[in-house]
Design a protein around this nucleic acid. Structure first.
Length: 204
DNA sequence: ATAATGATAGGCT
DNA sequence: GCCTATCATTATT
């Protein structure tokens, strides 16, 4: 590995925009983690929006405020991490302090520290390193210790990347029991990118 | 395709 | 306190 690249975090007001817009704006950005055992970063290639009060699939549906969702009621730009079975998933808090909304980061394309990411993923190779929300946290070393971390600062932050040439939208994944919310087109990915987690059967 | 995994929250008795 | 569901992943049929 060559000398760690000097990544420049986005400014705090980067997160100050509507959630659906932020979800698309995050595509192509870098997600960077500076850990004890090294730096790793990847391009965000897939996101999903969770818009609290009216979104049955969101943890903050109907403004449900608990210890777990507390950070969603904070200002935009903080990390909302939570555990799903054995896996940690990471979201970017959005909607400002008035709205409990978030953007789930579902997949990244390894860009720096690929060897380290692969090692953390027990030798997974290529797109298998981080093509899923639980996989990318493992690859980057993100855990519950990052809960509430401001994503405009080291050691975990969003950095400017490469704007995507084209964005495709579709239905979200893994929320089959969420009533009408399951059909909202609140999932976004970089068109044609090979590192997206997966596609629904009825979609390409 | 399906089962096991096993953290945490939320709803219930 | 017990029960069930969950914004998954992996290994196994």
């Amino acid at each position: 590995m060559d000398k760690p690249h000097a990544f420049l975090p986005v400014s705090r007001d980067f997160f100050d925009r509507p959630t659906l817009e932020l979800a698309k704006e995050l595509l192509g950005c870098l997600l960077v983690k500076e850990a004890e055992d090294g730096l790793a970063a990847g391009y965000i290639v897939e996101t999903e929006a969770y818009i609290g009060p009216g979104d049955r699939a969101a943890h903050s549906f109907e403004n449900r405020r608990t210890k777990r969702t507390e950070i969603m009621f904070a200002d935009s730009g903080y990390a909302y991490t939570y555990l799903m079975h054995t896996h940690c998933l990471v979201n970017v808090v959005s909607g400002g302090s008035a709205n409990p909304e978030a953007v789930l980061i579902r997949a990244i394309e390894p860009a720096y520290g690929t060897e380290l990411m692969s090692a953390r993923r027990r030798g997974a190779f290529g797109k298998n390193i981080a093509n899923g929300p639980g996989k990318l946290t493992k690859a980057l070393g993100i855990s519950m210790e990052d809960y509430g971390h401001p994503l405009w600062q080291s050691p975990l932050f969003i950095a400017e990347g490469t704007p995507p040439h084209s964005i495709t939208e579709g239905k979200r994944i893994g929320i089959e029991n969420s009533g009408e919310a399951r059909d909202y087109l609140w999932r976004f990915w970089i068109t044609g990118n090979q590192f997206v987690s997966r596609h629904r059967k009825e979609e390409k």
